[in-house]
Amino acid sequence: MPIISVVVELLDKPGQLLSTLEPISRGGGNILTIIHQRDKITPLKRVPVEISFSVEDERDAKRIVEKLKEKGVIVKSYNEIRLIATTSVMVIGHIVKTDLSDTISRIDSTGFAEVIDMELTMPEVNRPSTAMLTISATGQEKLEEALDILREVCKSKNLLLVEPINEV
């Protein structure tokens, strides 16, 4: 289920937001977050508002954006952001020997999280390698779920997992 982010510019007066949200829900969008970017008010005193919502199908999203434009809403940007929560973790040990591609696919196969970046250092044969993985997920909770999976995988493969200090 794709997650869509649109940034619209609204006049800072009552009713503006509602008239933007209505076509989104009518078009089948499930609103996830609304962020007023008050620090980025335009010279014409419009407030950029970032709205993210999930839709069944990418085509629904396009229809929603068309509808917004028809109603005169200024749509500044429109992106599919399937992955909205990201964290980096380090894995140390015999990463390659214990089937690195399996470790990664355990995350990727969830459907809600994937390893989007990896840096691997292999000093010499038989010495432990070090890898930094960047994992993204469709939301904070899903990211936490993906980390749980990784914790289990590392435990069973006797790899050291170094997690970030700020819990995700």
Binding site: S88, M90, I92, T121, S129, A131, M132, L160, V162, P164
Partner: peptide
């Protein structure tokens, strides 16, 4: 409890590329 005995010297380089360091917390 997990200690620091398995931390590799490369770990710091890899971490530094993402502007991280490693401490026992």
């Amino acid at each position: 409890v997990v200690g620091i005995t398995r931390i590799t010297p490369e770990a710091f380089e890899v971490a530094a590329n993402k502007n991280y360091t490693i401490r026992l917390i």
